[in-house]
Simulated assay, not measured.
Amino acid sequence: MLVRVTIEDLVRLRRARDVMDRDYAQPLDVPALADVALMSPGHFSRSFRAAFGETPYSYLMTRRVERAKALLRRGDLSVTEVCFAVGCTSLGSFSSRFTELVGESPSAYRARGHGAGAAIPACVAKIFTRPLRNGPSSGGGQSSGGGASPGNGEPVRIGEAESAGAS
């Protein structure tokens, strides 16, 4: 099944993605984000994946892990406090996803020295410490699934989209 993402859809999807970037610590779900994008939940999930290369949930968890990494580098909060501060409600799920994306547990990440990067502005550090999917947590990379950003005004056609239920 091909999913067609028009420029108008992409604008609405970016609006929902901006909500996830800004309100990552709030309880967000697909129906609420679909409302922001003025789409049905199923269409929103399929279109989001087609446009950005990952599900809305996966994108949101990546943002939460990015913020968690920054809080853990500070070292003044426990892993549990960081988990809840970034909007996760289950320490086990948070730790599993963190380990999957970063390559080490939140406790190990927190215990490791981060002094060498202290002088780097957070906006720059975020680019080089962004969690990678299906790969090691080496610097310089971006999250896989860069998605489509049409520059010629044409609709984007993406291959197999996930089913609406898996988000």
Rank of each mutant, 00 (worst) to 15 (best):
V156M: 09
G115K: 07
R64Q: 15
F52D: 01
K126A: 15
C88S: 09
M20W: 03
L72N: 00
R73V: 12
T129Y: 00
A68I: 08
R64V: 08
G115M: 06
A70I: 10
K126Q: 11
R64L: 08
D9S: 06
G159T: 09
S40W: 07
A116V: 12
G115I: 04
D18A: 15
L101A: 12
S90Q: 06
F128K: 00
D18F: 07
E154H: 11
S58T: 13
L132K: 04
R12N: 13
A70Y: 03
C88Q: 02
G153A: 13
G75W: 13
D9I: 05
P121L: 09
C123E: 14
D9G: 04
E8D: 14
L10W: 01
T62N: 07
R157F: 14
A118D: 09
V124E: 08
P41K: 10
R15F: 04
S105V: 07
V30R: 01
R17V: 03
A119K: 06
E100F: 05
A118Y: 01
H43A: 15
R14T: 11
G42K: 07
D23Q: 11
V82Q: 00
P106L: 07
I158H: 05
L33Y: 07
V30F: 01
V156G: 03
D29P: 00
G139H: 04
T6D: 07
D9R: 01
G117D: 12
V30T: 11
G92W: 00
M61Y: 05
G165M: 02
G117Y: 08
R157N: 05
